[in-house]
Every structure is written in structure tokens, then in C-alpha cells.
Design a protein around this nucleic acid. Structure first.
Lengths: 156, 156
DNA sequence: CATGAAACACGCGGAAG
DNA sequence: CTTCCGCGTGTTTCATG
């Protein structure tokens, strides 16, 4: 998977900066690392090509967008054949309200993170979309009271 | 919290584009929306000022960075006074390996998302850092087998 | 929404370790 | 031979009208 593509300390520092603020210019980064723009530019292009940097995105404010409710939903399937699992994944991917979905080890099969405008909407979502997916055994909803930390950064 | 600051359809389209790809230029967005660069530029600046756009970040590849293990950790506290909860939050924020932390409603108090290089490291992390936080009652770890969806986008 | 000036991104030839 | 520097050109950003 990873033939350790020669990531040195400078690369790591660039990655640390960009995962905090992707709008930093090569010039600014260069000053922080006591280099000129050129090597920074070349390194960033290389990191993009190597797919260490996957993409650049804007992070929006959920609450100001009127989707203040976050639900963590734990799903266990009734049957666990390969076909059933693939089918479940496919159906989940079609639900736009689901932001994240992880296949887990253990007695719970899937964790979902779902964003909603209101509890009413969540009720409607579960009733008309989620619970209509066949093969769901157990479905447990946990509501987020407060986001203590919600970062996209990795500790590198 | 939100005096619905006059977000129209064009604003929403801009936000949809930027949360997929923050590197799109105002010119490119303008072409997509059949406008010129100037109004797009002004709208983006306004959305940033209104804090609908919180920040721009680079999304990195966890596996290529040698942190392939993701753990969802469910924590229940022993005591639930205000002071205990605040103290727990403060101590969690100091653990760099914890990427996300949510205070939950229900019998589980906190969900943590933790990234690790290996299971050995996770073992060490729990032994020397997590379990040393006082007041933890129950600590359950769930390991991610596969990321089905892992987006930073909201459905807007 | 158009315009122009300033800043930035990007590519290259060359220097330096 | 790899990494960095500095300059040149083309885009983009950003303030003004």
C-alpha cells in the first residue's frame, strides 16, 4: 500500500500547515520554514501527486446552515453474508443526510453520522428512509449534545 | 444564534462547490453559475465574514501517513457533576491522538474518534493516557474495519 | 458587473550542497 | 543527483468606480 515515498520533515511541516489552513500561500509557508517559495511549491505539487494531499475543502458552519442536530447511529444487520453487507453499504451511500459511515468490528456492524435540521426531520428520516433498508437488525440513535472537538486534522 | 442572514440560492451553490473543492477559482465558479467573477468574489468574502465558511483545509490520506487504525471509543463517566464533565473535556482536548469528541445524550457520555499507527500504539495510548483520566466509568473501543463514507460535506 | 494594479502561482535554467 | 534559488510569464485576487 505505501512504499514510504520519502516524506521528510519539511514535507510534514507543510502538511501540518495545510491541514490547518489551506489558504496559506507558498510565500507564507516559505517564510515559516525559512525557505523560498519554489521548493515549497514543488513539494506541495509532489504531495498532491503522491495523493498524500487528497483534496482541499471549505469547512462550513452547520448551525448557521440550519442543520444543528447531529446523530450517531449504530446499526447491526440481521444477516452478514457478503451480499447483504455490500447491499447495505450501497443503500447507505444514497442517503445524502449520512455524512460518515464506518463498517465496524464487533457486535455493532455500522456507525453512521447523520446531520439534521430538527428532531422531527430525524424522525421522518428514520421512518421513511433508514428503517426501510432491509436487513437492519438493531438501530440505536445517540444524539450529540455538544461538539467538544471536531477536527479534520491528523496528529502528524 | 442565526438571524438567517439572507443566504440565497446562489450562495448555497457556491457553498456546495467550495465544500467539495476549495481550490476552485472565482472564475471557474462564475462559469458554472453563469455569472462573472466579481459577484462570486464578493459573495465568498461575505460568506467568510458571516462565518458560514469557517476555514479552508487540506484533507490528507491517513493510510499514506501511516495512521491506518481508526477507533471509535465510547466513554461513560462515573460522576456527572458540572465540574467533572468540564474537567474531562479539558483533559481530552490535550490528547493529540483524539480527532473528534462529542458529548452525547443517553447512557454513553462521550464518543471519541482516535487515529493510530497500530493496535500496539492504541494499547499503549489507552494504558498510559486515556485510562489515566480520572472519573472514567466505562470505556468501550470499536475498531473501524472500513470507511464506507467519510465526508466533510453537509447536504445543503 | 467591469477595470486595473498588486500579489500570487507556476515553470525553468542555474547554483549549491 | 537531489534540493533550493531567482527570475519571467500568465492567472488570480482584490479595491475602486
Amino acid at each position: 500500500m505505501l512504499p514510504n515515498e520519502k516524506i521528510d520533515g519539511t514535507d510534514l511541516q507543510i502538511l501540518r500547515i495545510l491541514q490547518k489552513d489551506a489558504k496559506k500561500t507558498t510565500k507564507e509557508i516559505a517564510e515559516m520554514l525559512h525557505l523560498t517559495s519554489s521548493p515549497i511549491y514543488e513539494r506541495i505539487k509532489r504531495l498532491e501527486k503522491q495523493k498524500l494531499i487528497l483534496k482541499y475543502v471549505a469547512i462550513l458552519d452547520k448551525k448557521r446552515l440550519n442543520i444543528p442536530i447531529t446523530v450517531i447511529c449504530m446499526v447491526s444487520l440481521r444477516y452478514h453474508n457478503e451480499g447483504f453487507i455490500d447491499k447495505f453499504e450501497k443503500q447507505i451511500k444514497e442517503l445524502k443526510e449520512v455524512q460518515e459511515c464506518y463498517h465496524m468490528a464487533g457486535k455493532v456492524d455500522f456507525f453512521l453520522k447523520i446531520n439534521m435540521e430538527s428532531l422531527d426531520n430525524y424522525h421522518e428520516f428514520v421512518r421513511t428512509k433508514l428503517s426501510r433498508i432491509e436487513n437492519i437488525g438493531v438501530l440505536e440513535s445517540y444524539f450529540v449534545l455538544k461538539e467538544i472537538m471536531a477536527s479534520t486534522e491528523y496528529y502528524i
